[in-house]
Design a protein around this nucleic acid. Structure first.
Length: 557
RNA sequence: UGUCCGAUGGUGUAAUGGUAGCACAAAGGUUUCUGGCACCUUUUGUUGGGGUUCGAGUCCCUAUCGGACAACCA
């Protein structure tokens, strides 16, 4: 927010404004197809579409690009809206569907036919392919390319009336069979599909293709800047062609223009919607909102925050070349956000019992603990302390190396918010494993500081052994082990790179106040990691552990 | 193979033709009741070759490398 780098998309917009374009007339759009859940890559697009509009006081429409009934579902229409709202963007009353324009688009197709710029073609998809030819040499015209207009009109009407089977006919724009751009070789603009559409039901059995529908839908809505990813670059001439060859052009104050930017690639992350869908279908993951999924729903369940995602999108910038962003950058932005917000709690994962020799049996000492040292308004809480506590096994070493600040025989550490404690003796089982520590506390140090002002280097975390909650946790790690998931080797499947340890169940002992926190609350178990109470199960003792954004443990050896 | 697009440290990105900067990562240090956070420091860069210019990351040519496209998907 402070340094304000202007990306190239913003420069385009600013150049238009400089040329006299009224910022208030700028209109962008976010056009998802409701055939799956939104993922982090879409978040980038959302930030471009909604974010750019917001920056210049302009509008951004939400339009569902629902022109292929076979793949789409109302479930995703709802989920997508939820995710965009969660990110914090709004489309106000500008919620549209390409399917709203089916009648209008049909009319425009008729118009093209009447102008001799489109025709009904009988070629099968195989023949279509063959006639189109290959890059480098011209294709050959369809035998129907010069079918009389009246006949085209009649056939198109019959297509709409459902008189033909799927695949029998297709409507094609008459452009240029010799174009070096394959998309200009008489692209299909309407095909027959007898599937049930999630909104229009069985009203239609012909559906417009993307290239025909998209630009014209933009034009219908008065979109001025249409941002999309790089793979649509070759479609741009088509985007312009349909607008410029139909009557819609005359209705436009500003002709919409398409601009492309590079899509997001993240290390260890699968970004292909099709493959994510496969993971859901094959039950490799729970569902679209599995915490291991890069979907917004999954990230949300995993404890990611809207701010973290938006700041990340801001930080990665916008270019026209493909890159592979390190997952660490996303995690950094989450840590940044969570550091300010997450409530601190104490928990022990791998416990070792500590008995405090000089503490009264049966007594419970309630100590004050700060909820968030970075946010005073988060207040304090009481933590119980008694004769027997658990500490982390890693926080004790019988033969500590140099610069080990935690507990070892004879050493003194601070139990956070409690007492200074010294290890007196170590109890082992017959295998020589440490099972219990006998320690003493300095009763004068209640709260964590000794009256004589002596310093201890290490502060460790603990829970009361008889007054704690057993938290059932799912520890989530990266779903894939391969860095670049967009580049799968020949003969390999992307599922060959699944991480077998991406979801592990474990139990931890947490301080009792964890029970009182609502689902979805981000927690930082101090010096360990970030957690969130699972919003799916809503069980206060069911936690999601975000291992990939765990705090750095910089103690080596 | 044909057309189009692109190339700045390990990674992601900045730089009206005028000192190559920021962030992540890595390494070292200071501080600390979280070995976190914060703060400080360090390392590494304009793909190669030509040209234009007083001056090129930027403009031109060329080579190389990378990507997109050849769905009745979006």
């Amino acid at each position: 927010m402070s340094e304000e780098n202007t990306n190239f998309i913003e420069k385009i917009v600013e150049a238009d404004i400089a040329k006299g374009l009224d910022p208030k007339s700028i209109n962008t759009r976010f056009p998802p197809e409701p055939n799956g859940c939104l993922h982090i890559g879409h978040a980038k697009a959302i930030c471009v579409d909604f974010g750019t509009a917001l920056k210049y006081g302009a509008k951004c429409n939400l339009r569902f690009d629902d022109t292929n009934p076979t793949k789409e579902d109302t479930r995703f229409v709802n989920a997508i809206q939820e995710d965009i709202k969660w990110l914090g963007f709004t489309w106000d009353d500008r919620l549209f569907y390409a399917s709203d324009y089916f009648e209008r688009l049909y009319g425009l197709a008729v118009e093209l036919i009447k102008a001799g710029k489109a025709y009904v073609c009988r070629l099968s998809s195989e023949e279509f392919k063959e006639y189109r030819g290959v890059p480098g040499s011209a294709g050959k015209p369809s035998p129907d390319r010069d079918r009389p207009i009246a006949e085209n009109l009649e056939l198109f009407a019959k297509m709409r009336a459902g008189e033909f089977e799927e695949g029998k006919y297709v409507v094609r724009a008459k452009i240029d069979m010799a174009s070096p751009n394959m998309h200009m070789r008489d692209p299909a603009i309407y095909r027959i599909k007898k599937d049930h559409h999630h909104r229009t039901g069985d009203t239609w059995c012909i559906y417009p293709m993307y290239d025909f529908a998209h630009g014209l839908s933009d034009a219908i809505e008065g979109i001025t800047h249409s941002f999309c990813t790089l793979e649509f670059e070759v479609h741009r001439p088509l985007y312009d062609w349909f607008i410029e060859n139909t009557s819609i052009l005359q209705t436009l104050k500003i002709q919409p223009r398409q601009y492309e930017f590079a899509r997001l690639n993240l290390t260890y992350t699968m970004m292909s919607k099709r493959k994510l869908q496969q993971l859901v279908e094959e039950k490799v993951v729970e569902d679209w909102d599995d915490p291991r999924m890069p979907t917004l729903a999954g990230l949300r369940r995993r404890g990611y925050t809207p701010n973290a995602i938006k700041n990340f999108c801001e930080a990665i910038g916008l270019t026209k070349y493909n890159s592979l962003t390190e997952l660490e950058l996303l995690e950094y932005h989450l840590r940044q956000d969570l550091n300010k917000k997450a409530l601190r709690r104490m928990a022990v994962f791998n416990p070792i019992e500590v008995e405090i020799e000089n503490f009264e049996e049966g007594k419970i000492d309630w100590l004050d603990a700060i909820n968030n040292p970075e946010d005073e308004s988060a207040g304090t809480r009481k933590v119980p302390f008694s004769k027997r506590i658990y500490i982390e096994r890693d926080d004790f070493m019988e033969n500590p190396p140099n610069k080990y600040y935690r507990l070892s025989p004879g050493a003194e550490v601070r139990l956070r918010y409690a007492y200074l404690m010294t290890c007196k003796s170590v109890i082992k089982n017959e295998n020589g494993e440490v099972v219990k520590l006998i320690c003493t506390i300095d009763p004068q140090s209640r709260g964590g500081n000794a009256p004589d002002g002596r310093k201890v280097k290490g502060t460790i975390h603990w829970v009361d052994s008889s007054n704690c909650v057993q938290a059932v946790m799912k520890i989530y790690d990266k779903l894939f082990t391969k860095e670049d998931m967009s580049d799968i080797e020949e003969g390999k499947d992307f599922k060959d790179y699944l991480n077998p340890n991406s979801c592990l169940d474990t139990v931890a002992f947490a301080e009792p106040s964890v029970k009182e926190l609502p689902a979805g609350t981000p927690i930082q178990f101090e010096r360990v990691a970030y957690f969130v109470i699972d919003s799916k199960t809503s069980k206060p003792d069911a936690l999601v552990f975000n291992r990939t954004v765990a705090l750095k443990d910089s103690f080596k050896k």
